[in-house]
Amino acid sequence: MSEQDIREGMRVAVWDEPPLDFDPDQLIAKAEKVRSRRRALVSVGVGTALVVVSAFALPTFLIRSNSDNPGVNVAKAPTSSAEPTDPDTRRSRRLSQRVADRLPHVLPSARGISVVPERPSIFDKPNAPTTKQNAPTTQPKANGKVTAYIGFEDGIGPTAIQLVVADSTGRAPDVCAGGQLCQQEDQPDGTKVVISEVREGSELTTVAVTHIRKDGMTVTLYSFSHNPTNGSGLRQTVPIGPDGLRQLATDPLITWD
């Protein structure tokens, strides 16, 4: 069969074609309907996508903005109207501000130092960083005990250390706090320093240094491998080691009254 036969055969094959019933107006009307339906579908799709993206992005954005600005609730320079009336809160701010003022001597690279009072204590679960969702927003107050966070930013990112001061009348924190390493050092002035460390494998995740004074007051400083104010910012080790925390806890220039 030659190519000419094929060519001729195809021509003859369409020779008896049925009459064409084609109306371009009908086709155009149908096409316009398809186009408007497609536009509506795209609009609905884009709207749905925006809602879904917003639903996922908004919480992330809020957490991140809070993480970037850990001192949002800082009362570094309290005004008369912002001055808390609760004596425990006032004391918490006062003591943590003193620690914040001394922090650059321990960690010269610290920037943006701020005070975040009355945030949740997470040392009860030292091995599990808390998240914003499951962290309580306020710390239950105990008589004679103040808790605060000192936020700062080092070369890695924003983080914070935790301060707990308990009077002799208050409930002192567990000085070993479940740490794998807990060692007590007697100081020349008769006070004691207890250093507790928690590790996950070879990584140091929590360090707690407690200074037990002669009058029974305990000053405990915690340093975590994550940002305890929001549970994020996980890093390989703690931002301030046991020596730095001990220097702060026993700093003679800080008065704890």
Partner: peptide, 19 residues
Amino acid sequence: GFREFATSHAAALRRTAYL
């Protein structure tokens, strides 16, 4: 323009489609 194109080419397109 489309109407003219469709009217003049519909039959030829249908033949090709038939083959």
